[in-house]
């Protein structure tokens, strides 16, 4: 089968009645090339959210509010042995820079902040506001 790029090069490449499988292997959840997960919308952004793991309390407000399924989650066990989600990062291929996650983040000093797209992550973390300088 043609690649997604070839399939949309000209109108006559569109296959009538096409079925687009989201998975190459549904059992193993291996996503196919047709899954929009593999499409990049990063160039929509002018600003990007930067995540500060040090301040995060894993409330997961950002995860549930992100319209673009960007938050990377690791399943961990809490002290009582119950599973819970730990936020480990942001998928910058899928993030459109809407800023909703920053808006909903509840920590006194936000654990997510918007920075100009070109700012390096380390640079952003170094500029993070402190208690006396919010």
């Amino acid at each position: 089968m043609a690649t997604p790029k070839e399939m949309m090069s000209t109108w006559d490449k569109i296959q009538f009645g096409a079925i687009l499988p989201s998975f190459e292997n549904p059992e193993k959840k291996l996503k196919s090339k047709f899954n929009s997960f593999n499409y990049k919308v990063a160039d929509w952004r002018v600003e990007k959210p930067v995540f500060n793991r040090e301040l995060c309390i894993d409330c997961d407000f950002c995860w549930v509010s992100c319209p673009d399924s960007c938050f990377l989650v690791e399943e961990v066990e809490n002290k009582r042995g119950k599973k819970q989600a730990k936020i480990v990062g942001i998928n910058y291929d899928l993030c459109k820079g809407c800023g909703v996650c920053v808006d909903v983040c509840p920590t006194p000093i936000k654990s997510l902040l918007m920075f100009p797209e070109f700012t390096e992550i380390d640079e952003a973390l170094n500029q993070w506001p402190t208690k006396d300088n919010k």
Partner: peptide
């Protein structure tokens, strides 16, 4: 929410909303 957030997403990003 901590538990709910362990759900593997069934709706993916990369859409154009």
């Amino acid at each position: 929410l901590k538990e709910f957030a362990c759900t593997p997403d069934r709706f993916q990003g990369g859409h154009r909303l």
